[in-house]
Amino acid sequence: QRITLKDYAMRFGQTKTAKDLGVYQSAINKAIHAGRKIFLTINADGSVYAEEVKDGEVKPFPS
C-alpha cells in the first residue's frame, strides 16, 4: 500500500511515523508543513519504506 507522509501521520500519529522511519518527530512535522512530496510504502510485514519525489527524481527518505 502506498500513502502520503501526511496521510500516514494523520492515521498513525507523528510519533509513530517518526519511529517507523527512524527520524525525530520534529522532522516529520517540518516535512509535512513544508509540503514535501514524500510517499510511504507499507509492506505486507508491516515495515515501512519512504521515498521523496523532488525535481523529478525519486530518493529514499530520510536520505
Rank of each mutant, 00 (worst) to 15 (best):
Q1L: 13
Q1K: 11
Q1D: 12
Q1M: 13
R2W: 13
I3E: 06
I3P: 04
T4D: 06
T4F: 06
T4M: 06
T4R: 08
T4A: 12
T4Y: 05
T4P: 15
L5Y: 01
L5Q: 00
L5A: 00
L5V: 02
K6E: 13
D7S: 06
Y8M: 01
Y8H: 03
A9H: 05
A9I: 14
A9Y: 09
M10V: 10
M10T: 09
M10P: 01
R11V: 09
F12S: 03
Q14F: 15
Q14V: 15
K16F: 02
T17H: 00
T17W: 01
T17R: 01
A18G: 04
A18R: 02
K19F: 09
K19Q: 13
D20E: 07
D20W: 03
D20G: 03
D20M: 11
D20T: 06
D20V: 11
L21N: 01
L21R: 00
G22V: 03
V23E: 02
V23P: 02
V23I: 11
V23K: 02
Y24A: 15
Y24T: 15
Q25M: 09
Q25T: 14
S26G: 12
S26I: 08
S26W: 15
A27W: 11
A27R: 08
A27G: 05
A27T: 15
I28P: 00
I28E: 00
I28G: 00
I28K: 00
K30W: 09
K30F: 09
A31P: 01
A31C: 05
A31K: 01
I32E: 02
I32P: 00
H33A: 14
H33I: 14
A34I: 08
A34S: 14
G35P: 04
R36Q: 08
R36D: 08
R36C: 07
K37Y: 10
K37T: 13
I38A: 00
I38Q: 00
I38W: 01
I38R: 00
L40E: 00
L40R: 00
L40M: 09
T41M: 12
T41H: 09
T41Y: 12
I42P: 04
I42K: 04
N43Q: 11
N43I: 08
D45T: 05
D45Q: 06
D45E: 06
G46K: 06
G46D: 05
G46F: 06
G46R: 05
S47K: 09
S47Q: 08
S47E: 07
S47F: 08
S47Y: 07
V48M: 08
V48K: 03
V48Q: 02
Y49T: 14
Y49P: 00
E51G: 04
E51L: 08
E51C: 08
E51Y: 09
E52R: 01
E52Q: 04
E52W: 04
V53C: 10
K54R: 13
K54D: 12
D55M: 08
D55H: 11
D55R: 09
G56R: 07
G56I: 04
G56S: 08
E57K: 14
E57Q: 13
V58M: 10
V58C: 07
V58H: 07
K59Y: 15
K59A: 11
P60I: 07
P60L: 06
F61W: 15
F61T: 02
F61L: 03
F61G: 02
F61Q: 02
P62K: 05
P62H: 04
S63I: 09
